[in-house]
Nucleic acid binder design. Structure first.
Lengths: 139, 139
DNA sequence: CTGAATCCTGCGGGATACTG
DNA sequence: CAGTATCCCGCAGGATTCAG
């Protein structure tokens, strides 16, 4: 039996494994968790404080998914109160470089994006201004 | 007045511009659109067929956002029936490399991720198996 | 053919309270 | 402290229809 799905190279197909893996890391929070853990082991509460805007629930979900996919290691210390430490696995560490490339790109092209956005938004403001002008004239 | 937000380097802050730009490209569809347009100019319908699983609505939304942020150029030919062509802008083309790095990573670590997932999932199956075993024994 | 508009549903995701 | 459980709401996003 051919392992067709295993080696499916067509990223545009929904059943492509590469694409399914890609979706795992291309979301709002996973990159931020990687950025955080890149600096070293962190506890749940530390991550919660460090990553501004993430909720308890989303952090748990994200960490669980990353753990399941072998990106982070979760270590529980059986003490009271509980201590849980998260760190990148060797596999997770291989993601640092490509994920960081995104951060670098984002930072390096801030102005261009901002400028494009302004230009685009002004495109629709002009008709509005004309409309207002015509409304004013009608008085 | 300090332009604090403009140069905010702390990716972990929600008001960090880098992070806001990062979110633009770290979603389910944007990378796929880039992969598609990387091969050249495409029409709306072509993209729709090419990117398996994307809906008309999501493709429109994604393309609009990318256009607004200066990543893609949209050209409308005033003919009937309408022809609209999408292509990467120079800015969008600078994203090809980092975005492709993700695809390469995904493809290169398929097995590792799959293996980690299997291991993780089996971790919870064992208690179930034991439970079943005990149920069987009770008969 | 390319979309905008409308409708409608599921579930993403927040807030809160509870457990180990 | 680190989560799970519950409740609940808003909107993401699919299906469909209409327009240019």
């Amino acid at each position: 039996m051919e392992t067709k799905q295993q080696t499916q190279p067509d990223i545009f197909r929904a059943d492509c494994l590469s694409r399914q893996v890609l979706v795992l890391i291309a979301d709002e929070w996973t990159p931020l968790v990687i950025y955080a853990l890149e600096e070293g082991t962190m506890r749940f509460g530390q991550l919660l404080k460090r990553i501004d805007g993430i909720s308890r629930k989303m952090l748990t979900q994200t960490l669980r998914a990353m753990e399941r996919n072998g990106l982070v290691q979760r270590v529980v210390y059986p003490v009271v109160p509980p201590v849980v430490e998260y760190s990148l696995t060797p596999l997770g560490q291989t993601l640092i470089e490509p994920i960081n490339a995104l951060r670098v790109w984002a930072y390096g092209h801030l102005q261009e994006v901002a400028r494009a956005r302004t230009t685009y938004d002004q495109r629709d403001q002009k008709p509005l201004q004309e409309e207002i002008a015509s409304l004013v004239q009608q008085r």
